[in-house]
Design a protein around this nucleic acid. Sequence first.
DNA 1: GTAGTCATGGTCAGTATAGGTCAAATAAAA
DNA 2: TTTTATTTGACCTATACTGACCATGACTAC
Lengths: 159, 159
Amino acid sequence: MATIADEIESYIINAIEFNDNNWVEIKRSHLSYRFACVPSQINYVLKTRFSPERGFLVQSRRGGGGYLRIEKLTNDDEGGFLRQLIEECGNRSVSLRVATGLLERLVEEEFLTGREGLLVKNMVHHNVLAGAVAVQDEVRALLLKSVLLTLLREEFQNC
Amino acid sequence: MATIADEIESYIINAIEFNDNNWVEIKRSHLSYRFACVPSQINYVLKTRFSPERGFLVQSRRGGGGYLRIEKLTNDDEGGFLRQLIEECGNRSVSLRVATGLLERLVEEEFLTGREGLLVKNMVHHNVLAGAVAVQDEVRALLLKSVLLTLLREEFQNC
DNA sequence: GTAGTCATGGTCAGTATAGGTCAAATAAAA
DNA sequence: TTTTATTTGACCTATACTGACCATGACTAC
């Protein structure tokens, strides 16, 4: 039997397909009204069904004119190479050494240009992070994960 | 473009481009009449969309014959420009809003490519930093400073 | 040339709108 | 029965919009 969460999920997936692009823009309040549920239910669905691990990216804007933007990430990377890296560095912490290796690999495989690689490498360097972060390796993991996710985004491919 | 603020923003940007110069002169009362909003709404838009971080200069004159003059600044001395930004964001903390404006500016001025801008913008987003950092704004400042410093490096220019 | 009046733009605090978080309560599955 | 997934609501944060009150500059009357 289908839960409300399931229904909301398939509604959104449908909307994405209908939209011809790989994304939709929709109001949280509209969804919660349509499915007669509390607004936070929508966040639950987004968190459990439209996570990066499942290949989705959710962006939003609060306040007047706010919205949710749900995007299906492109799926044509070589054998889920990027996804695998996300999995690997997503949860645990990443040392500077590992990060450097990973970034160089991304440049080699031409997911990133040399400039992009250098830019990010400098950002996750301990000289930078030491300034304010005790748990450097965890922040580094989050930052790298963000890079990997960006690489999967359609918007990024076309810019 | 959902909100009135957004519409006013693009109207002004359009007016600047149409004007062939890098600026427009316009009456606040005219704008508020045209968009059927209170005059102070215009000030809100100027404050949030035409800030210095985004490379705009707003001047005005009160009283009879008063006006707003909105100018898009461009930068000739590259090193100086970057150094100034470092100065500005280097020491204090940087909100997401300011960071976004600054990065978009760097892309406009062609210090960063669109891809690079997006990459960094995603990295300093609160969705990322919230994961492990209490004082987000300070880490964001450090990360941006790193980007700016990278831009000044010769190695980066030639890669 | 000083005071008064009117035409402008500026500020700031309050209100409205909209999404986010978290943990408790409930339901379903193992 | 224990564990996991779903549902709910109280409270939080971000962005937009409004209106009362303020400041400045130009013009006019004296």
